[in-house]
Simulated assay, not measured.
Amino acid sequence: MTVLTGAYVARSSPLHRVPPGAKVSALAVACIGLLWVRTPQAVGVAVAAVAVLYGIGRIRPREAWSQIRPLRWFVLVILAVQLLITDWVTATSLTARIVLAVALAGLVTLTTRTTELMAAMERGLAPLRRVGVDPARVALMMSLAIRSIPVVASIAGQVRDAQRARGQERSIRAFAVPLVVGVLRYADTLGEALQARGMDD
């Protein structure tokens, strides 16, 4: 079941050697920092920084593109909607922040084994046992959430391709309905996989 496996690329790099917990913490801080990326200059600096990190991680361009490619139609829709309600600077900075956040999450999964990522999350959440929280389940949910971002974006891309083939590029309903159905089917498949592993409760 591919949704339960990561996109880890076995390679020797400084980022691969960084402890998973540190990478997850850095990801959270970076995503918060992206909230302040609001100007074209700031977007340029953020893009350059992410590109440098991919270089440090020795991630090839094709592997990096695989993390962003599923977002292409989703990003275009968001950009179009934002352009209708805001100015172009706000619209582009918002879409850029989304892409950069996904790219950073993708970099974490590309340089960290899923098992190590889940173990790090579980250790970080261990204190929550005192209030009745199961760290293992929360870690699994967070790991799946990270991996689900490109999956959902890929579904959006497929819907967009089908929409364009039917000549309905401008129909919001023709995009939204199949997208919701596709995501629900994915959720059902994921639920069945978890149930098969005894995690249905």
Rank of each mutant, 00 (worst) to 15 (best):
T111S: 06
I149R: 00
A51E: 10
P20G: 05
Y186L: 14
A193M: 08
P178F: 04
A64H: 07
A28H: 05
I85H: 06
H16G: 11
K23Y: 01
W88N: 05
S93K: 01
T189H: 10
V159A: 05
W65E: 09
L27D: 09
K23C: 05
V81G: 07
A196E: 13
P61S: 05
M118Q: 13
E116Q: 14
I149F: 14
P178H: 14
V138H: 10
Q168G: 00
W88E: 12
G21Y: 03
P135H: 03
E63N: 05
E192W: 06
Q41D: 12
L94Y: 07
A51R: 09
L190H: 13
W65Q: 12
L104N: 00
I59E: 05
V45W: 13
Y186A: 11
V77G: 11
Q195E: 15
T92R: 01
A103E: 02
V50F: 03
V3H: 12
R173M: 13
L104W: 05
L190K: 03
G55S: 07
I56D: 08
L94T: 13
R170D: 10
A10M: 05
V77S: 08
V151Y: 11
F74W: 11
V183I: 15
A139D: 00
A145W: 04
L128T: 11
G198T: 10
L104V: 15
A176T: 15
T115N: 03
A10C: 04
V81Y: 04
V138E: 05
T112V: 06
D188P: 01
W36E: 11
A176C: 12
A126W: 09
V43G: 00
L27P: 07
L125H: 13
E122W: 03
D201C: 14
P40Q: 10
R69F: 09
I155W: 14
A156H: 11
S93L: 02
T95P: 02
R69S: 08
P70M: 04
V3P: 12
A22Y: 04
L4S: 01
P19F: 08
G6M: 09
A80W: 12
W65V: 08
L110I: 02
V102R: 00
G6H: 04
R197V: 01
L94W: 00
R38P: 00
L35N: 09
V75H: 08
I59A: 07
G44T: 02
V37N: 01
I146N: 02
A139T: 05
P150E: 11
R38E: 02
C31H: 04
R62S: 12
R17V: 03
T92G: 02
F74Q: 10
D87Q: 04
Y8K: 03
E122H: 06
T109F: 00
T39Q: 02
G55W: 07
T95M: 02
R97I: 04
Q41L: 15
